[in-house]
Amino acid sequence: MISDKHDDFTPRITSFLCKWCSYTGADLAGTNRLQYPTSIIPIQVMCSSRVDPVFLIKAFLSGSDGVLMGGCHPGDCHYETGNYHTRRRFAILKEIFDSLGLESDRLKLSWISASEGPKFAQVSNEYTEQIRKMGKNPTRKSVFL
C-alpha cells in the first residue's frame, strides 16, 4: 500500500520484470553503476506472460504511481511465445483503462533484454520523470476502492 502522507513526491513504480531478460537487464544496470531511480520497485517473475493483468490493476489501485511491465523482445522469449501473449493482454488492459477514462499512461510495457543495462536505466529514468509530472496516483487516497 502506498501512502499519500508525504509532501515530497518520489514516484513509486511497481515493476514486474521477467527473470531471463528485463530483471537481468536491471541487474546489469546496477553492476555497471548506471544510475536508475529508487522509484522502481522490482518484482521478478519467470516470464512476463506469468503476469495476469489483474496484478497490474492491483498495483495501480494500491497506489502505485506507475506500473512497469518488463519482458524480452518479441521473438526472444525464453519460453518462445510468452511475451506475445503479454503484448496482447497489455493492449487489452490499456484499452480498458482508456475506455474507462483511467490514466493509462500509468501503465507501461517495455521490452528490455538481459544485455540492455543502459536501456533499463534510460527507461526507468524517463518513465519516472513522466510519472513525476503526472503527480501522485489518486488511488493512494481513495477509500471506496
Binding site: K58, G63, I96, R140, F144, L145
Partner: peptide, 16 residues
Amino acid sequence: ARGALRLPPDTILFQL
C-alpha cells in the same frame, strides 16, 4: 497508508 479502507476489499479490482 491511507487511514481508511473499505471491507471487504477489492470492489473495483473485481470489476476491472
